[in-house]
Amino acid sequence: MRRAVVLLVLAAAVSLVAIDRTLAPLTPLREAGSAAFGAVQNAVGAATRAFAGDARLRAAEQENAQLRAELLSAGAPAADAGVMGRHQGVAAHVVGFGRQRVTIDAGAAAGVERDVTVLNADGLVGKVTWAGPATASVSLITDAGSSVGARMAGSGELGVVTGMPGEGLLRLSLFDPHAPLRPGDQVVTMGSAGSRPYAAGVPIGTVTEVESVPGAATRMALVRPAARLSALDLVAVIVPRPGR
């Protein structure tokens, strides 16, 4: 009897994993969890902000997020000049924290989709990995699995920025091994096709240390993120404008 129960429980766990990975993703289960636990996270976040006394700033925050998203994209190269015509900024708060992932209190209802840019007043935060009904999961740029196309603000050299979770730093690899690179140089996003997952021209961070490895195929440097990723609150999501 007891063996049967244990075997049943273990079989249920194994079959959950097997179904989610091979047959069909268990989206309904995940949406239910997002609806229930996400709602509680949103409520706790809203209550905390109301307690802190900034509930009346909500409208200003919303407008601010939109303006900021427009401003950041205005500095983008000509090829992406039309980005803000097709995209808009959605203001959101970070309400839950995971391992190199955060929950924001805006979801599919606000137009948030998978693989869109998340930024805050200082710079790039990450991208949306999953959007539930009223919440979305955001993977931070310090995640070791994250890689962002990057451009040096001054020289225009191209490269890739990957995360280093332990130190809260980023690693920049420039494709040109002889590219000029100094501590203090600014790194911005290169931008992806259709601004997904990353819009162009968003500040990523500042070079803090250049690694000089003779004969290396790429130019490596450590970058400190512009956004304080350990103390996130208000963020903006660049989402496609509905109806386009």
Binding site: V17, Q41, G96, R101, S137, S139
Partner: peptide, 16 residues
Amino acid sequence: ADVTPPADGTVGRTAL
């Protein structure tokens, strides 16, 4: 724990 956002991995991994 598997379905509480911001978790977005395999459903049932932590359960197993």
